[in-house]
Design a protein around this nucleic acid. Structure first.
Length: 398
DNA sequence: TCTGGGGTCCTAGGACCC
DNA sequence: TCTGGGGTCCTAGGACCC
């Protein structure tokens, strides 16, 4: 049986949600109607465009570029700050509305969902459901979405990316040639910055060119990724809508400094603050980690990383930080550092861990200490007790 | 490039084992 | 040892996504 899939994508999510929130708070200007972007803090060297209005797009502003460059394209551009917890609230509102149609929903990102309606149609057509959702979101939640209607996730996602905003598009098998193959290959999901020039060198300019290329040549050049790109270009995708909760595969935190740092003590201090946040989340998920990874980016943007597998899995701040500190020592060659990050992976559910032959007791003792501290954090606020003191990355540079 | 932060997945090469 | 081949595990780096 053909699957009935929708992809719901919020138009300019961060900017639209900010607009709705501002209007709710008495603002009279709708920032969706003027050249505006959501951007990071330039003083903290996080000045990139995270979302843009349609008006801003008309000036050629793209997501990810610097605010400096955005201003050059449009000097009157208005820049607003983001607020992640507000985004989450709007994301939840959308999700709750979608739940009225099916509980088979995959939250692909904060502003995108896949819906599997195969078992929930009851005689109605998929496109009419899409139109109803579109209308209701606009009326009830005051922002707009694009919806892709198709028989698999890839085609639904491609369809939702056609003309914007506030549109419903279908992309059925018989429409692939006319609607998808004519697009530049860079529009295909999973064809990124590095693949585009390689594909062009092979004479592939459109998605159609890719679809009709010999798959073996693509596999030779790109490996598994080549096979996937070819399948996507041909509209082939058998992946399921993953609507059940899945545990994260890794947990990490990283930070770009307001100024480059060449002082190992300072780096260690920040590393500790980051590790505390990572392990705090780990314990909140009730997970233990077996691999610790530390990453640095120097002032020339060169990224390097070291990782180490632990003899036993743990969520202990002390154990993970000690490992991270050693990894940093191996990594750091005295250059100016722009970013540091710590990430843990190979995660296990706490109750499922195999008991290691040695030293589980010390691990457990450390984890107990952390859990006690976590409870205090929950009661009195996170800032009160982090071992990095009142450490707050911004404050550190004052 | 005045170039964020949080993820997932893949690959190549080396160590080590039989 | 002037040493073969295959498998597994580990690490570093990179591609891609939103």
């Amino acid at each position: 049986m053909e699957r009935q899939i929708l992809h719901v994508d919020v138009n300019n999510a961060f900017l639209s949600w900010t607009a709705v929130e501002m209007l709710k708070n008495g603002e009279t200007i709708d920032i969706r109607e003027i050249p505006a972007v959501i951007g990071g803090d330039e003083a903290q060297r996080k000045g990139v465009v995270l979302a843009k209005s349609m008006k801003a797009k008309q000036f050629g502003i793209v997501t990810g570029e610097t605010l400096y460059s955005a201003r050059k394209k449009c000097p009157q551009i208005k820049v607003y700050m983001g607020n992640h917890s507000m985004y989450k609230q709007y994301s939840d509102k959308l999700y709750n509305l979608l739940l009225e149609y099916t509980d088979e929903i995959e939250r692909f990102s904060i502003d995108e969902c896949f819906l599997d309606l195969t078992h929930f149609l009851r005689g109605e057509s998929l496109i009419n459901i899409a139109k109803e959702i579109s209308k209701r979101v606009k009326e009830e939640l005051k922002f707009t979405v694009n919806i892709g209607v198709a028989n698999n996730k890839l085609l639904a996602k491609m369809a939702s990316d056609f003309t914007k905003p506030d549109k419903v598009h279908t992309l059925y098998k018989e429409e692939i040639k006319t609607k998808m193959w004519v697009l530049p290959v860079s529009d295909l999901f999973m064809v990124g910055r590095k693949s585009i020039p390689k594909l062009e060198k092979m004479g592939i300019k459109t998605i159609g060119d890719l679809a009709n290329k010999d798959i073996n040549i693509l596999i030779k050049q790109f490996g598994k990724h080549g096979k996937m790109m070819w399948e996507y270009a041909n509209g082939i995708d058998n992946s399921e809508v993953i609507y059940k909760y899945t545990e994260p595969k890794c947990v990490g935190n990283s930070v770009t400094f307001p100024n480059d740092i060449d002082n190992i003590e300072k780096l260690e201090e920040i590393l500790l603050a980051l590790t505390e946040q990572v392990t705090y989340r780990l314990r909140k998920y009730n997970l233990l980690a077996s691999v610790v990874n530390v990453q640095i980016k120097n002032n020339e943007f060169k990224v390097s990383s070291h990782q180490r597998k632990l003899s036993t899995s743990t969520s202990s701040t002390k154990i993970i930080y000690n490992t991270a500190k050693e990894l940093l020592k191996q990594l750091y060659k005295g250059e100016y550092i722009r970013l540091i990050g710590v990430q843990v992976s190979e995660l296990y559910k706490k109750d499922e861990t195999q008991l290691s032959l040695f030293d589980t007791n010390t691990n457990e003792k450390q984890e107990k200490i952390d859990e006690t501290l976590d409870k205090i954090k929950q009661k009195y606020g996170y800032e009160t007790i982090t071992r990095a003191g009142k450490l707050n990355i911004e404050k550190m540079f004052k």
